[in-house]
Amino acid sequence: MELQVTTLEGKSAGKVTLDDAVFGLEPRADLIQRMVRYQLLKRMSGTHDVKNRAEVAQTGKKFGRQKGGGGARHGSRRSNIFRGGGRAFGPTPRSHAIELPKKVRALALKHALSAKAKAGDLVIIDQATAEAPKTAALRAIFGKLGFSNALIIGGTELDTNFALAARNIPQIDVLPAQGINVYDILRREKLVLTKDALAALEGRFQ
């Protein structure tokens, strides 16, 4: 598969040939879904917590006599059946992360890239640089290129001015090549790769 390379000024900068082993697969929704679930569960903090009967601030003294009270034989007020008592079977801090084999994760990324290529939402630019960290100027450039909702992947090192200018533009994400992931690819309409990012990606899967 061949794609036209463009510059940020909208000019042609030649063509590139995409590796069919990375960008030419038939997308599998099940693999992509598994990877998105893996990412979302892994980033959950898991800090939800409630107080059980050992943690609430209530007396542990037996509040009634064992017999002759006309009711049940209760002990502590910390019991979950009383107002102000501890909660039974409530959430405790834990990790929500699930396991997913490394090969499956790599394959899911290939399928996400192939899905963007098949849909025509993959754009290759020669480089992602800016002369100055000016958000207004970069927003105007993106408007001409049609990047209203896009994920831009640079090389191993991002251009500082470009990253600073892009970070305040809504629905525009900028990541280095090693930060590319399935969830961020899917949450943006267009995937924009620099030539350096394309080389890094294809080299990563060889």
Rank of each mutant, 00 (worst) to 15 (best):
Q39G: 06
P27Y: 11
R167P: 08
H48G: 13
L138M: 15
F82N: 05
V22Q: 00
L109E: 04
A29F: 12
A132H: 15
R188A: 05
V36Y: 14
G69E: 06
E202P: 03
F23G: 00
L201S: 00
R187N: 12
M35Y: 10
V56T: 01
A199H: 09
L107F: 10
R37H: 14
I32E: 03
G64V: 08
A112F: 04
P93N: 04
A13H: 09
L41G: 11
V123R: 02
P91V: 03
T47V: 09
P133T: 09
S114L: 04
E131Y: 08
G155E: 07
L107D: 09
Q66I: 09
A165S: 14
T7M: 07
I141T: 15
R139F: 06
V123F: 05
A140K: 15
E9M: 07
N149P: 02
L175F: 11
L107S: 12
A197H: 00
K61S: 07
I141N: 13
N52G: 08
T92S: 10
A163I: 03
I185Y: 00
K61H: 10
Q4E: 10
K51S: 03
L193I: 02
S114I: 01
Q206L: 10
A57Q: 12
V123E: 01
E9N: 12
V36W: 13
R43A: 11
D19N: 15
A137M: 11
L151C: 08
L100W: 11
A106N: 14
V56I: 05
M35G: 00
R94E: 06
S79L: 11
L25H: 07
S12G: 07
I141G: 07
L18N: 02
I153N: 00
I81W: 12
A88G: 13
G154D: 02
F162Q: 05
F89A: 08
K15H: 13
H96M: 03
T6Q: 08
Q206W: 08
A29M: 13
P101F: 13
A200W: 03
D173N: 10
V192R: 04
L41T: 12
K62H: 02
T156W: 05
P93T: 01
K116G: 02
D196Q: 15
F147E: 01
T47K: 14
V174Y: 07
V123L: 03
R34L: 11
K15T: 14
G154R: 04
K15G: 04
K103G: 05
P91W: 06
R188I: 01
K116R: 11
I98M: 10
G143F: 08
V5Q: 05
D20C: 07
V192W: 00
R77P: 04
L100D: 09
E9T: 12
A88C: 12
L107Q: 13
S114D: 03
Q33H: 14
